[in-house]
Amino acid sequence: MIAALKAHAGWLVHALGLARNPLRRPIDRVAAAISVLLLLVALAAVPAAAVFGKTLHERLAERAAVAAATSHPVTAVLLTPPSLSTPASEGYNQDSLTSTASVQWQTGSGPRTETMQVPAGSSRGDTLTIWADQHGDRVPPPPTQSSVTASAIFAALLVLLIAELACFGLIGGTQHLARLLALRGWEREWAFLQRGGTWSQR
């Protein structure tokens, strides 16, 4: 890894003209300019990802606040013993088994009954806490502050990782293409010399 970075850095110094080299070609300068531009983009991606993460955190926090304001926890009672079920899309294995039961909770318009997944080992008459909206319909619990922060950080890091990999991948591809074009140029000129040409005739 370190050797590869040193090789890229050495090539970039040579291509930019920071060290005098009569073998430098125009394609080297073009590739070097593109590499420098991509390096600047990679550096700019760091604060950009931070801004993205901050903005996403604010939006997720707003949604979590709305969810918390429009839902509330209620106590539900198991009406039936839990039964094991296997999703039709999955083969039989221990991880694919789930426990479901008929559950009932009270709403402003009367009792509400629904079949839902329940903890393994539950029994009829057991209670569990679920979240319901203002109409009594079951909804997911609102995200916690820690989950909102974790989601925003993960998304920001993922965006940064993709941007950095894309930039350095393009840098490596650009330099590799420049080397190939330079080698082909040397091969053509060497063949020209072997046919009796001179450097002054290029």
Rank of each mutant, 00 (worst) to 15 (best):
L16F: 08
G17T: 07
A19S: 15
P22Y: 08
L23W: 14
R24W: 03
R25W: 09
R25K: 12
P26A: 08
D28M: 00
V30Y: 00
A31K: 01
A32Y: 00
I34W: 15
S35F: 00
S35V: 04
V36D: 00
L39A: 04
L40W: 04
L40H: 07
A42S: 05
A42I: 10
L43F: 04
A45Q: 00
A45F: 00
A45I: 00
P47N: 03
P47S: 02
A49T: 01
A49V: 01
K54D: 00
T55E: 03
T55I: 05
R59A: 15
L60I: 15
L60V: 15
L60T: 14
A61Y: 01
A61D: 03
E62H: 10
A65I: 10
V66G: 05
V66K: 04
A67W: 02
A68Q: 02
A68L: 11
T70L: 03
H72K: 11
P73A: 14
T75G: 07
A76Q: 00
A76C: 05
V77M: 08
T80D: 13
S83M: 12
L84E: 13
S85G: 09
T86W: 07
S89A: 13
E90K: 14
G91K: 12
G91I: 10
S96W: 14
S96F: 13
T98I: 14
S102M: 15
S102F: 07
V103R: 00
Q104W: 12
Q106G: 09
Q106R: 07
S109I: 13
G110D: 10
G110R: 10
T113M: 11
T113P: 04
E114P: 03
M116K: 05
Q117V: 15
P119E: 06
